[in-house]
Design a protein around this nucleic acid. Sequence first.
DNA 1: ACTAATTTTTAGATAAGTCTAAATTTACAT
DNA 2: ATGTAAATTTAGACTTATCTAAAAATTAGT
Lengths: 218, 218
Amino acid sequence: MITLTEENYIKAIYHLGKYGREMVNTNSIAEALDTKASSVTDMVKKLAEKEYLNYKKYQGVILTEKGKGIAVNIVRKHRLWEVFLVEKLNFTWDEVHEVAEHLEHIRSEKLINELDAFLEFPSYDPHGDPIPDKNGKFINIDKIALSHSEIGNVYTCVGVKDTSSHFLKYLDSNKIGLGTVIEVLHKEPFDNSVKIKFNTTEMVVSQNVAKNLFLKTV
Amino acid sequence: MITLTEENYIKAIYHLGKYGREMVNTNSIAEALDTKASSVTDMVKKLAEKEYLNYKKYQGVILTEKGKGIAVNIVRKHRLWEVFLVEKLNFTWDEVHEVAEHLEHIRSEKLINELDAFLEFPSYDPHGDPIPDKNGKFINIDKIALSHSEIGNVYTCVGVKDTSSHFLKYLDSNKIGLGTVIEVLHKEPFDNSVKIKFNTTEMVVSQNVAKNLFLKTV
DNA sequence: ACTAATTTTTAGATAAGTCTAAATTTACAT
DNA sequence: ATGTAAATTTAGACTTATCTAAAAATTAGT
């Protein structure tokens, strides 16, 4: 049996290692989980023992296929619950993360597959992140950050990188959401800010914002 | 902060003590939670310390108002989730208990109140048990067990005492459910079995069944 | 290549919740 | 009233996940 703590370690390692593709070092795991490096060392030894990951002393860890399977399933549950909270229970996109952190650990195949069906098999969560299906398959669209957009092009906003409440509320207050159509007017080399236009509004956003807003070409 | 384990102890004590009205002894708690009496002693000391219950050595425990509040809130969450699972996710009434045992511990005021509204403020769960509102108030109907019914009277089935999968599946297979209208034809003094009639069907049910089926007068 | 700084691991300690086995208290039968 | 059975508590130990402090290994700068 896998514990809640183990699931949280696996999830963190999955995200830190670019969806289980890269090695992850001890300190970054400690930081992500707000714990100490020594605790991480203990836990990764246990997770290696259980074959959720491969661990090389002083080198870091990388998830096994088994570990990735666990991680993808948690991501699926997290994102489906987020859709449920926003679409059925009137949560805003900046409120869902915390509750979903708990709901994602409920273990019931039937629960999650029925929830998936109830929500009509959504492919993306409220932040634009893809939701794996029951076989772990993602439908990924090509998306770029606003910071990597081209001047003069028109894009649709399809996701965010930063899902913090602060950032999402900033977007809300400026009437930017998923689906918003944005034209890139100017990029300021001095501070990497970007001037954009949407719904007749023109505004300048900082580099920080530009790096955290994902677009696809229209 | 209250832990998941503490919540489970409080819930068990609430049910064992007739909704927090009676003293509960150590062994019955141990049995209910599938643990040892010595573990219970340790835990009730801690719960007494935190003022969720009053504990008298060798005498047993009884919940405080604070403890009852915790218990009622867990019951509310458990039963609302059960309604959700049956009404929205195609669970049967014998499948919901296990999953609800986990969902009941998710802590979010907004989640549970929005769920309540989404389900249109149900007053009873799929087994006929009353669901407290956000202030902890129950809407309780007078109900009697089939074993205490009167011959010749007609009743509506409004609940079950035993919520085990075995019993519920037995009722399903005999087409008895909440809302079924039942006439009591005969009570056999020898073995306390009861002969009933519903939807043109006549059948004899054992004392065990009769004690676990709740009715209200039509 | 060698020292210095950083990262990681080890060792030993702590807290929560549990267990077994022994001791204590209460309840009951005669 | 007294001895025995049943219930309960205490004492000491174990496990999981964590921590601090010290030791060891790796990486970087010159």
